[in-house]
Design a protein around this nucleic acid. Structure first.
Length: 341
DNA sequence: CCTCTAACCTATTCATCCC
DNA sequence: GGGATGAATAGGTTAGAGG
């Protein structure tokens, strides 16, 4: 049986939604503003954001970038002059920083979100922004500060996000997925292998860190180490066989603790070759109902399995985010399964 | 393929507020 | 003054877009 359910392009759409291309008009406006003041304050950035129809954090990013570029240019082209006039270069911003005062309510919401996910994506931050009334860029800063000042229990396991990102393993494509041509030839036998996930037993260490691109990746190939790196536990645990990609439009739920999906390859000894991969959903303390549906999957067909997953995800998401009634396929995708069973 | 750049990160420092 | 914490900066990586 050849079974193929592809991602129908939503994957790329999702992946590219992250990046916004500024048009010429926007760039001109930003450049003009930069000329006037390369260090605009929050209010100015807010005005620009409104005017250009982009978020204030994007404005901030743009200015950061351009200050860097400017500095580099100055260094390269005007080294001597800069040395001479270095002392009179006025510090761009002396007006004083305006400190945001978060209310108890706002802080509580942020802390709660932080405990669920230390690395919220843009959509999550915007949701929090709506919820709290705090600008998204402030929320971004808040999370940065919070991470810096409230390191997780295993802080320091990997020193930077880049380490996590770069250690994904070569088989992931640029979007963090395997190419759809990957085919798993096997009899899929999904056992009720939900592990008991202690916090520290998460091979991806999802409770703390976000291999950003892995947020949308839960498909493993046979014998692939998803995370190599210096964590022996990680690499050994993740050598596995998983052939399901489940993409969530929002990554919020990612860090909530893993459940484990065990797939046994055809003719392979479970004990020897069972691979574990993370489906980053579910509270570790609650055994997901999917546990049941996964039993004897080899007696079901894959579409039925995927549909079950879909339903299960919907119910879980409804539980976590009761304000959202339904997660569209764009937000909750199950795709890219090519199996020969 | 290569360059540019948006988005993101950590580490560090500055600034402000409150005790 | 010092601690807590918001804001900003520096310096880095990643990956999509476009030449």
């Amino acid at each position: 049986m050849d079974l193929s359910c592809t991602s129908n392009g939503l994957l790329e759409k999702e992946a590219r939604r992250r990046r916004i291309i500024l048009n010429q008009n926007q760039k001109d406006t930003l450049c003009a503003s930069f000329e006037k003041n390369p260090n605009p304050d929050l209010a100015t950035r807010g005005h620009l954001a409104k005017e250009l129809g982009i978020s204030e954090s994007q404005i901030m990013t743009w200015f950061q970038k351009h200050r860097k570029i400017q500095k580099q240019l100055e260094f390269e082209c005007c080294l001597e002059e800069c040395e001479v006039q270095g002392q009179d270069r006025p510090k761009a911003k002396e007006a004083g920083r305006t400190r945001t005062h978060f209310t108890r309510f706002q802080t509580d919401i942020l802390i709660e979100a932080f405990e669920k996910n230390r690395f919220p994506g843009i959509a999550t931050r915007e949701k929090l922004s709506k919820q709290t009334g705090i600008p998204e860029s402030r929320i971004h800063i808040w999370f940065q500060n919070r991470r810096a000042r409230h390191p997780g229990p295993r802080h320091g396991t990997h020193t930077t996000a880049q380490l996590s990102q770069s250690s994904q393993g070569p088989a992931l494509n640029s979007a963090g997925h395997f190419a759809p041509s990957n085919t798993l030839t096997s009899t899929c036998s999904l056992g009720p292998a939900f592990s008991p996930p202690q916090e520290s037993s998460s091979p991806l260490d999802l409770s703390r860190g976000p291999p950003r691109q892995l947020l949308r990746t839960t498909m493993l190939q046979p014998s692939q180490n998803v995370l190599g790196g210096d964590d022996a536990h990680t690499s050994s645990t993740l050598t596995g066989h998983l052939s399901t990609v489940i993409t969530l439009g929002e990554e919020d739920v990612y860090t909530q603790a893993p459940i484990w999906l065990l797939i046994q390859g055809k003719g392979q000894d479970l004990s020897e070759n069972s691979g574990l991969a993370v489906l980053p959903l579910g509270d570790s303390t609650q055994a997901p109902p999917a546990n049941q549906l996964l039993q004897d999957l080899n007696q079901k067909d894959i579409p039925a399995f995927l549909q079950c997953w879909d339903e299960w995800f919907q119910s879980m998401l409804a539980e976590w985010m009761p304000d959202k009634e339904y997660w569209s396929p764009e937000q909750l995708e199950i795709h890219s399964c090519q199996m020969k069973v």
